[in-house]
Design a protein around this nucleic acid. Sequence first.
DNA 1: CAATCGTGGTG
DNA 2: TCACCAAGATT
Length: 325
Amino acid sequence: MTSHPLPPVPAAPSGPAAARPAPAAATGSAAGSPAAADLHDLVIDWFDEHARDLPWRRPDAGAWSVMVSEFMLQQTPVSRVLPVHKEWLERWPRPADLAAEPPGEAVRAWGRLGYPRRALRLHAAATAIAHRHDGEVPRDHAELLALPGIGEYTAAAVASFAYGQRHIVLDTNVRRVFARVVSGVQYPPNATTAAERRIAAALLPTEEARAARWAAATMELGALVCGARSPECGVCPVAAHCTWRLSGSPAHDGPPRRGQTYAGTDRQVRGRLLAVLRAAPGPVPRSALDAVWSDAAQRSRALFGLVQDGLVEPLPGERFQLPSR
DNA sequence: CAATCGTGGTG
DNA sequence: TCACCAAGATT
């Protein structure tokens, strides 16, 4: 198999003066170049054979299933999402079903997926869909983006995966794949950059259905083969095209990537407080919450934060519960 | 732009 | 063991 050079990626504008309309003639556009088409085939063919059979990818999965999965998958691994996603779709088959229940039920059913504000936002998004979108998950990227808890990535993912549209889908997996294959570095930057968007745009297949397939395929490649810790280049369909690999897989240089500490933080306290409230069928006395953390100052700060975030509802008589509305 | 926001698996 | 990582969004 012949190894083609990578498609050229448009250079970054060198300054404000360089801001200009996109070239009228997209001659030599990377997406249409032979090398790009080659990459598309390799990755999509690989995907056809190795894609995981996930519930939200099945033919009968609707946009709501996709949307719920995207919320749950924000910073949470597939293996832990699977059982909760199943419960949610059985209990709330449509957005209106979720919207009909108090937000606290969403927080409770969220279980231990982490970042429970996502549950609150998903409930709020479902409510907005029920009221303003006739109960249907919107197809329009801008309308999706306007929903609570949906950012650039999730809007593109829902539009692409649920509705087959052509969008730049830049998640951590895709960014890592492009960092290696195209940019020749081990890891992408901490925050998504304009350069990354240019690369993604340049490589996005022109045809809509193929673009959607490409988005899912590049994500899956990043998840299954081009992992952060252990890239398995031996089975990678584009190893022969990978700039990083071809240059000897150089280790990441520069400042260490941000690490997240957890032990002893407010987040840990919030987690413990909320765990008590999730487990209780109804209101809980303050004494039950006091038991989870010894430092009173930090404890009250965490509880206050939860109330402020709408995750906890204070009641008369020093009692607390999950939000009833 | 950097900090914040949970939780559990893993190399 | 423990730092790192996992389909980000919001402020």
